[in-house]
Design a protein around this nucleic acid. Structure first.
Length: 683
DNA sequence: CGCCGTACGGTTTTT
DNA sequence: CCGTACGGCG
């Protein structure tokens, strides 16, 4: 197969140049995924690089899978040897292998943000920090940012200036100690501890850097300092590092992504080749013009060239000003049916994009009621693994794998209710803290103390009934740990359900217990996929997969359905027809960004990302009034509305003309182009 | 001391 | 509209 055929000159250069650092600045729809896949194939075929010596990092696990498929298509089976994954999954792999040299338990548990918040809360309480003044979430976000900038607790303490920072510094120390005690790493640790590993053990770094002859990174504009540092460490021997990014699509600075990594790359690798991919193969010229009109209002934007396409002018971009959310959804449904009827699209060709997950509900309700049916898939939203019953069972599983995981222990210690109340839990924590041990060890010492095998200066003050309940829980846990070594994860879930009488617990606590029990059954089915591994390995892989693979990664395109997705999650995806809903001040741009210019610029880029997902038809929608938690309020149109050139508009107007026509005239430029086909706008 | 019912508050984006 | 916090009851 000729890897270079059917590539334009810029793409060809990006694929052909085999050695040295390379910076590819690629606009939307420029085929960057394709270029990376072809570059990997060319390295193997022309450069003679063994696949196992290639490291390719993508932004999501889904992108990893797609990359693997593409390369496989070009190379065949040898692709299996390439390391492809997100930074987080690649780091987890490195740390499972070599983390012990840094004192990290091989069975470490990965804490998600829910776990982090619970832990921070406990730390704040233990330090007598007033949670009203220092909310766990705000404290955590400062700590998380510090970690992503590779500032540890003592580094943070040194540079802390004001009172808030001093309190956070204390919390940071306590949080790190609590994580270590729980044998847990949070998401940021996966990156930070790998950087530490490579820093503190040069021979380990050398081993990885020797191995990876080529490093490729997609979505480079959304990497943070820890990720960039890690990439440089791995590329430190061979210097073959190829990064692909688009500053205009940088939308994750709130997760510590730093656009300066791109300028620093040119500084750190002065001999790097810069390749610009500015030909667009995705969208019509009309869609690109609208996107360009929005992004060109971005202050301090670096790249000023305009993307061009060979896909022709295409249909006008349609703006629709609905009276309320219901009318907005009705328009989406009408247009889906019209386009299906006239152009023969499948449901898979449509996506509805919004700023916040909460906006999906109104759309879902409308779609559920639509007749004939419109199937849809919701990306994100209330995720399966975030459901309470699933998290409960997972907490038991995590305890079996790592009983020092105190967050999980405290989650299920009285679940189902077994007579261990707040008072007992508090006393257990006081007792454990006094001994300097995790809660699990504290429980064991409690049992030893009761049997007279341990004597202490200040004995714990438990009611005898509470003490019995606590030790009963310890027995249960130890029994499950014993079983965990013997049976499959599938069977372990069954034994947990049985031992805790979990189904009855659901029945007595929830009206929708059947549905919740189905979710437990579904979790068992996921676990069944690990049947061929040994019990311990199976449980470990199962838990890691759940921690690192988000639901957005599991979207299957096999069923034919309309996609409901946030603008963030839509990054890297494309659809023939895109509806961007809720283009209102306060939603996009989001009200929480109003007080910072940097955040406001990011909102604009987010809008740009959405606009450029569309291949053929793009619909921009807003509602004049919208119901938000019970109250209906009027929202002015998004500021991006007015940046869009009048020539590409069709003002669809609102169903209730008398109520909205004045507003429509004021806020929307009238089109001089055609009109929507008759019937689409009528009630 | 634990459990259950009611009132109230809070609501971006995600590996 | 969902989860939490608090207060009264067993």
């Amino acid at each position: 197969m000729d890897i270079l055929a059917a590539l334009n000159p810029a793409q060809r250069r990006a694929v052909e140049t085999l050695d040295g650092p390379m910076l590819i600045l690629a606009g939307p729809g420029s085929g960057k995924t394709r270029v990376i896949a072809h570059r990997i194939a060319n390295l193997v075929l022309e450069g003679g690089v063994p696949p196992y010596r290639v490291l390719a990092v993508t932004f999501t696990n889904k992108a990893s899978r797609e990359m693997r498929d593409r390369v496989e298509g070009l190379l065949g089976d040898t692709v299996g040897d390439i390391t492809i994954g997100t930074f987080h999954s690649v780091c987890a792999r490195f740390l499972r292998r070599d983390g012990d040299k840094l004192g990290i338990d091989r069975s470490f548990t990965i804490y998600d943000d829910d776990d982090q918040i619970r832990l921070i809360k406990a730390v704040l309480e233990a330090n007598n920090i007033e949670p009203r003044q220092f909310s766990p979430r705000s404290v955590l976000s400062v700590i998380s940012r510090a970690k992503n900038e590779l500032i540890d607790a003592s580094g943070f303490a040194k540079r802390s200036g004001n009172y808030f920072d001093e309190v956070v510094a204390r919390a940071y120390r306590g949080y790190e100690a609590a994580l270590a005690e729980a044998h847990a790493l949070d998401f940021d640790d996966l990156l930070g501890q790998t950087v530490n590993l490579f820093r503190e053990l040069p021979d380990v770094r050398q081993r990885y850097a020797d191995r990876y002859l080529h490093v490729l990174i997609d979505e480079f504009q959304d990497t943070n300092l820890a990720q960039y540092t890690l990439a440089r460490q791995v590329a430190s021997v061979h210097g073959n590092i190829c990064v692909v990014g688009d500053p205009d699509q940088s939308i994750y600075s709130w997760r510590s992504a730093d656009i300066r990594n791109i300028t620093n790359f040119e500084r750190d690798f002065p001999d790097c080749q810069v390749v610009l991919l500015e030909e667009n193969y995705r969208s019509t010229q009309t869609i690109l013009d609208v996107a360009h009109a929005v992004i060109s209002e971005h202050p301090g934007r670096r790249r000023t060239t305009r993307m061009n396409t060979n896909r022709g002018q295409g249909s006008p971009v349609v703006g629709f000003e609905a009276y309320d959310g219901g009318e907005e959804a009705a328009f989406v449904i009408r247009e889906i049916r019209r386009l299906q009827r006239e152009k023969g699209y499948g449901f898979n060709d449509f996506a509805v994009m919004y700023r916040t997950n909460a906006q999906s509900r109104a759309m879902e309700e409308a779609l559920v009621e639509a007749r004939p049916r419109i199937p849809y898939r919701l990306v994100g939203g209330t995720r399966f693994y975030e459901r309470r019953e699933v998290k409960d069972i997972l907490a038991y599983l995590r305890l079996v794998h790592n009983p020092f995981d105190s967050v999980s222990l405290l989650r299920v210690i009285n679940l189902p209710a077994r007579g261990i109340g707040d008072r007992s839990i508090e006393e257990l924590q006081r007792w454990s803290r006094g001994l300097g041990v995790p809660a699990y060890t504290g429980l064991q010492l409690l049992r030893d103390w009761r049997e007279g095998e341990v004597s202490v200066d200040s004995p714990p003050s438990f009611a005898s009934r509470s003490l019995a309940a606590l030790l009963g829980f310890l027995d249960l846990l130890n029994r499950l740990i014993e079983r965990g070594a013997a049976v499959s994860t599938y069977e372990l879930i069954e034994e947990i359900s049985r031992a805790t009488d979990y189904r009855r617990h659901l029945q007595s606590s929830f009206d929708d217990s059947d549905e919740r029990w189905d979710n437990v059954e579904e979790l068992k089915n996921v676990a069944a996929q690990y049947a061929e591994l040994t019990p311990d390995a199976a449980l470990g892989s199962f838990l890691e997969e759940i921690a690192l693979v988000s639901d957005a990664d599991t979207i299957d395109n096999r069923s034919d359905a309309v996609t409901l997705i946030t603008l963030h999650a839509a990054k890297g995806l494309e659809y023939a027809n895109v509806f961007m809903v809720g283009l209102e001040e306060g939603i996009l741009p989001h009200i929480r960004s109003f007080d910072s210019t940097a955040q406001m610029e990011e909102e604009r880029r987010l809008c740009y990302v959405g606009l450029t997902r569309a291949r053929e038809h793009l619909f921009l929608l807003r509602a004049v009034r919208r119901v938000r938690h019970g109250m209906s309020s009027a929202n002015p149109p998004s500021r991006y509305w007015k940046d869009i050139p009048p020539t590409s508009w069709i003002s669809a107007g609102a169903r209730s003309r008398s109520r909205t026509s004045v507003l429509a005239h004021e806020s929307m430029p009238r089109s001089n182009g055609g009109a929507l086909p008759a019937g689409t706008i009528q009630p």
